[in-house]
Amino acid sequence: MGIIKARQLVHEYIRRDEEGNVESISTALDHLNLDVEQGQFIAVLGHNGSGKSTLAKHINALLTPTEGTLWVDGLDVSDEENVMTVRENAGMVFQNPDNQIIASVVEEDVAFGPENIGVPTDEIWDRVEQSLRTVGMLKYRTYSPNKLSGGQKQRVAIAGVLAMQPKCIVLDEPTAMLDPTGRRDVIRTALELNREKGVTIILITHYMEEVVEADRVFVMDEGKLVMQGTPREIFSRVEELKHYRLGVPQMTLLADELRRAGLPLAGGIMTREELVEELAKLRA
């Protein structure tokens, strides 16, 4: 079994009036099936309200299924007894850098998680140091978090998750509020964790450019998985993506327009480097 497996996963948000009668039910996840292998870098796309965040919260057992089953590293998240282990296995980083830092010193913030699960003190400090080094924030260990930029705060949040030594990290739009440098640093950190430490990464994003280095892309719509494949496969299906309120990377769009205008460019261009190579080849 892979690190994450969902079968017929359903989640309903039920709204009740003041007397407790059901007012409305909205289905956020609708019989979703999904498999993620250990060590993969997965990008999840989908318009606002497509169910991405609801799915993310299941992987961390913040929400539990209404129906169906979700296993994280072989453990059923619906089983109360598994909840703590699931949360150790699957860490979560949210969108707003200001909402997830709690301590007044960076290293204490990172230490919070391992301390909470009873890691011995010496080991806590080892983990804190390693985690901060991995995200490139070691020299800020004694800083106050409010002196950091948005991107730096997000990297501290990632370090906090890393200190739990999870097998999998879910990042729910971690770059939505960041400036260009912050965005680049956070994505680079996520990639490094995946490539060098083998941590499974689930990246939820609205930026198509952040998806191109993923192993696989999942596209969600109305609580279902409607497309999956490599970034190249997914971004070759422009019309379908538009239908789901998504897009393609700008360079793919430009290559497409140039091709239409008569330049014989190869298909599947996603990055600037690829487009430059193709154009240089054409010229030679």
């Binding site: 260009p180 360079m251 430009l254 240089a280």
Partner: peptide, 23 residues
């Protein structure tokens, strides 16, 4: 712009890289 944490649009970089390749 990069030195102050910003960037240019993708297209700007593309143009400069194409220039370097002689286009």
């Amino acid at each position: 712009l990069e030195a102050v944490g910003l960037a240019a649009p993708q297209v700007t970089y593309l143009m400069h890289e194409l220039r370097e390749r002689g286009l």
